[in-house]
Design a binder for these strands. Structure first.
Lengths: 360, 360
DNA sequence: TTATTTTCCGTGTACGTACACGGAAAAATT
DNA sequence: AATTTTTCCGTGTACGTACACGGAAAATAA
């Protein structure tokens, strides 16, 4: 252990000395809150440059009396759902920033109910936060929400999906069009001609299709067109229920008996396990299945070999980075990148364990 | 901006108050450096538990006079090589920790020369560091080195590869056997019978085969055996030179004319671009090529479609996590996980950009 | 000129922790 | 009982920064 004096970190008192002023003046220049003569300001700025000064962020937040409150607006979920990861990641991420005097609050909404989103959004204003992070599910309601945020000068960030023409601070999410394109490539490469492809969708009372899901679908179709596979493959669709396992089973029985050449299947939402359950029960090992997101059940079927590919989108990183960038921007006045696409991670039976176990 | 007093973070003075002692005593208990009566100690420990106190790491390292010096022992490299990433990542990583009074120094050795490694290792002792991070290239020399470190009570961590029976603090690296297995799966799936597989190796003056490369090779063979492909495929080997492009070209000309059914090729080191260069020049689009690591040239050929797959191993994370864990252990006395495998990341033309561009 | 305002800037304290110093109380020794 | 030693613990200062306060100097007004 090297106990000697730490190698001279240069602080404001050093630049004060060099500039021939007091540290109070240096501080005024740094935070440019005026009351400094031009001469002094320039001397300080020169000293800052000459000594290559950078503030000690620890000391800064120690001394700071400011407290930052961020609000996160995210969907409600069932245990094991995709959104659980995001939710938990917020808690984990905020721990990295508590020493910067940061805290978060959360508002939940129903993914299928725009008015529930609007209500959650409205509740944000009861006590004005310093920033908002949200998953923008409903375009109209989101636009109204962020417009109101703007009048209050409250910055906001999107994650998961994005509304391009809003004035967000950052976006973190996957390029879902591209991930659909990649899904098609993985799923369809090397399939025999005239194979049937099963596209599994979810029954909805209301006709809501999330941005992400719709875009994956578009990317998927794009690949088919680009490769001229429209007539070489046949797409078969089936709509499964969220909760009625029995009904789904007979639906699938029907589909598979009507279409004898199904060689591959895909779900654009995260519920690949619903089909996997069927395939496993029927011992259908001849269907290549691709799904999204590392739900526990998906992972389990991947390991069993029922699901061939899972595409992941690092929900934890999306959340962490969103929060981190909000801190960078608001607390440390640093610049941040507006649009950030997370990688399209390809998981197979053989690399899933390392992916999951790796704790950065 | 919420300027009100920060929500009462509890510090040592709070537990001092509750325990009815001074903060000096609290500090003595926390760092258990004695000179505290049993009664006081217990009162303090109870207060710590009751108030759920956790130290402010910022304040701690601000007040600390200790300075930590870590030494990194890594291979020399040419610009663009795999090891450049690791080297640069050390610089980047240490920036995250400078405010914790951490600095690093580096020692380079020749990958092909064990005595050069030994010399680099020996030079570490000129000024005793607080910790060492190294890529253990030569088993014997490494064991000697870490034995000496142990006599000096200097902790050390491995990255890239690992020597299991050494008393290292952490290891970060890829399971190269498994990554070879996966490579085989990606490369060989769906190939026609009697296809020839080209295995590209590197000519070496001395017979050194890195751990990683050898293990990938073993994993590759394991897949072939497990699938019973020994007789259905034929492996063809070629040894390319590191620097003689012209000689390599005629070597490859020869190999491809002798073996007319080469449908796939692999390199177990990071130099896939050397074969890609040839394939591109000869317009051979019928060879599926898999390589390792995101060297600029590899990435470029991947994007062009000459390389079909690249397997990446997050060298930047390996380095960052090694350094971070050393800080966690030595500075913050936290526990760390000993063996950490990084994910086997699968990159194709279509997802490489997002992978590279994503800055966490 | 004197009084008043404005501009400018130095001093001091606080943030939560580490640690040196020294003093009081208790214990041991004479 | 007086002295010495040991045990225990409170006080004070420092880390680098933020910011309040108030004072000196300069500019303006009387």
């Amino acid at each position: 252990m090297n106990e000697e004096n730490k190698p001279g970190r240069i602080g404001i008192k050093d630049i004060a000395l060099l500039a021939g002023v007091s540290k109070g003046t240096v501080d005024r220049v740094i935070h440019n809150r005026g009351e400094v003569s031009i001469k002094s300001r320039e001397a300080v700025q020169k000293a800052i440059k000459d000594l290559d000064y950078s503030p000690n962020l620890f000391a800064r937040s120690l001394a700071s009396r400011k407290h930052y409150r961020f609000v996160c607006v995210i969907p409600k979920y069932q245990p094991g759902d995709y959104w659980e990861t995001a939710d938990l990641s917020f808690d984990e991420a905020v721990r990295s920033f508590t020493d910067y005097n940061v805290s978060i609050e959360k508002r939940y909404f129903d993914q299928l109910d725009a008015s529930s989103f609007a209500a959650a959004a409205e509740s944000v204003f009861s006590q004005l936060p310093d920033g908002v992070i949200l998953a923008p599910f409903f375009r109209t309601e989101t636009l109204a929400f962020v417009a109101k945020l703007k009048t209050q000068n409250i910055p906001f960030s999107f994650f998961d999906s994005m509304i391009e023409d809003a004035d967000f601070l950052t976006y973190y999410g996957q390029n879902s069009f591209q991930s659909g394109y990649i899904a098609a490539k993985l799923l369809l490469e090397g399939l025999p001609e005239n194979a049937e492809i099963l596209v599994v969708r979810t029954q909805r009372k209301k006709n809501v299709l999330s941005n992400q899901t719709a875009n994956r679908n578009r990317g998927f179709i794009e690949y088919i067109k680009k490769r001229g596979l429209e007539r070489k493959l046949k797409l078969v669709e089936v709509w499964l229920a969220d909760d009625d396992e029995k009904a789904n089973f007979s639906l699938l029985q029907n589909v598979f008996s009507m279409n004898r050449s199904i060689k591959a299947a895909i779900t654009f939402n995260s519920k690949a396990y619903r089909l996997a359950m069927y395939l496993e029960k029927m011992h259908r090992t001849d269907v290549r299945l691709l799904g999204y997101d590392l739900l526990e059940k998906n992972v389990s079927y991947l390991k069993q070999g029922v699901i061939s590919f899972l595409i992941a989108q690092r929900p934890d990183k999306q959340v962490y980075c969103s929060l981190r960038d909000m801190c960078r921007k608001l607390i440390f006045k640093q610049e941040v990148t507006r649009v950030n696409y997370v990688p399209v991670d390809l998981l197979i039976k053989d690399n899933i364990d390392y992916y999951i176990d790796f704790k950065e």
